[in-house]
Write a protein that binds this DNA or RNA. Structure first.
Lengths: 194, 194
DNA sequence: CGCATACGAATGAACGTTCGTTTGCAAATA
DNA sequence: TATTTGCAAACGAACGTTCATTCGTATGCG
């Protein structure tokens, strides 16, 4: 029974460490020897736990895509007003960016290094997410809750606006996570307001 | 007199092409052989015009840092209200992102691949720019033109909010450059408004 | 003019290094 | 004993870069 030894499996440790390295140096600039050293192994030993460098990236990308899609699912099922839906999704983006910085990096930057069957699949998931988010924004505009504006401009501005959190926010620094969340949500919601 | 034969020198062509490749695939994932092929040369021939891969990156980073710093200089010299200063700088970021996408990539992403004497120098320039931008935001808050909020949250949200333009905007598509600029400026300025 | 010289530009071959990955075997764990 | 884990060594491929050489053209000089 090779289930659990300590808290998490070594495979999980490798994945998390890789995610951090990919965020700090980028996927291409992170070598398997870098990764091995960071988890106190030799490069060859990694392959007892994972099957390729790209598999690691693939897992990171799809896990996080799934996280955002689940959040979308949840938001859609509650019957909220468009502003409340956006607020909820925005909170998801912000807290995710702060407590697991890699998600944002994967979602925004590193996915392009996927190879072809995976690349197209990931892009499809991303397109699906964007489309559902855009629907909410357009609904809010038609209901008069949001200012009339190009939905794509609003969509991508929202996505991008949380991109800095992952390399700027440090818990315990000047602002708490809750304060940052509140500030950013207010900024964006006011930008959307009719 | 080896001045001009056609429009631009081959060195300039190499730099521009490299900037495009760095934006599309990232610095590390772009090989000198990729670059050579893109300018219709062999890899070895590149070195008749440039001295290293990193020199290209260095030029891109510092040229664009200088562009933003010049814009800052200009905005500071006119005696404008804080909102008008921000509007002006925001316009600079937006138009730059649309007409020369690489600037934003360099300014936001690729600089971290610089090597050490250059890396520190670049970070210093960047810190200077951010500090002057932050001063404007804080002034606007004290003057009551902007809502009171954490200046860093405002600052980085503004920077990030234009990051999507470079891989989304295509002239001639649904929106013109002027429309995009107007929409984004309005979004951000309303988010700042008291 | 005719010819030597200099030089910018391009190249194929090769350098040393690093890349991701595979293999065979030993140690640890079950 | 059977399975998992780790490692040294090695693999071919790709990396950034150097080098000697070549070709074409422009200049200097008789």
């Amino acid at each position: 029974m090779p289930k659990m030894k300590k808290k998490t499996s070594k495979k999980a440790l490798i994945q998390e460490t890789a995610a951090r390295l990919f965020r700090d140096k980028g996927y291409s600039a992170t070598s398997m020897r870098d990764l091995a050293e960071a988890v106190d192994l030799k490069a060859s030993s990694l392959y007892n736990h994972i099957s390729s460098k790209e598999e690691i990236l693939k897992n990171i990308c799809f896990e996080n895509a799934q996280r955002f899609l689940s959040g979308m699912e949840e938001v859609e099922q509650q019957s909220l007003s468009a502003p409340d839906q956006v607020r909820e999704l925005l909170r998801l983006h912000i807290t995710t960016a702060m407590e697991d910085a890699t998600s944002v990096t994967a979602f925004n930057d590193e996915w392009r290094h996927l190879n072809e069957p995976d690349l197209s699949e990931f892009k499809a998931l991303r397109r699906d997410y964007e489309q559902r988010f855009r629907k909410i924004l357009e609904g809010g505009m038609q209901a008069g809750a949001f200012r009339r504006m190009d939905a794509n401009v609003a969509l991508y501005t929202i996505f991008s606006s949380v991109r800095w959190l992952y390399d700027w926010f440090q818990p315990g620094k000047a602002l708490t996570a809750e304060q940052v969340e509140q500030e950013v949500v207010e900024f964006i919601m006011q930008g959307l307001k009719a």
